[in-house]
């Protein structure tokens, strides 16, 4: 399981990386913006994308839309981990095809739960 973590704050990337390691996911890479993440995704055989929303160049919502519009990437599960809390934004993310939405600040337990749920659904749906 190869996971890409996208957040413009390195501290948050480290937190997520450590939590993932605790959950048994050791193969992670990091990007600090949607615009750097997209080429990594296109060239990198990633299985899972965890991204922030609010980033300077390409926000997470645009990254999500770009992933869904890319033939090679469109089935990749995407988890948004963000401080963006407007209902409108959550609805927009859902409509853009997000697989999970975690609001910051979050707990290790929430992250575990959401990731498990995403894979449960993927395995069930085939």
């Amino acid at each position: 399981m190869k996971i890409l973590i996208v957040d413009d704050f390195s501290t948050m990337r480290r937190i997520i990386k450590n939590l993932l390691r605790d959950l048994g996911f050791n193969n992670t890479s990091e990007a600090d913006d949607g615009s750097t993440a997209l080429p990594m995704l296109q060239n990198g055989n990633f299985d899972f994308l965890i991204t922030d929303w609010n980033m300077p160049n390409m926000p997470g919502i645009d990254l999500l839309k770009a992933v869904r519009a890319d033939d090679k990437l469109k089935t990749m599960p995407v988890l948004l981990v963000t401080a963006e809390a407007k209902r409108e934004q959550i609805v927009e993310a859902a409509q853009a095809g997000v697989n999970g939405y975690i609001i910051k600040p979050f707990t290790a337990e929430t992250l575990r739960e959401k990731i498990e749920k995403i894979f449960e659904r993927i395995n069930a749906g085939g």
Binding site: N54, P59, I61, T82, E84, K86, Q89, I103
Partner: peptide, 26 residues
């Protein structure tokens, strides 16, 4: 602004309306 993301919803500020109150709400 909304597309770029607005950062955490700070209680008592403009734009703090219509925000979810936590993960359960999401």
């Amino acid at each position: 602004d909304q597309n770029k993301g607005m950062g955490p919803a700070v209680p008592g500020t403009a734009g703090a309306s219509d925000v979810v109150s936590g993960q359960d709400d999401v």
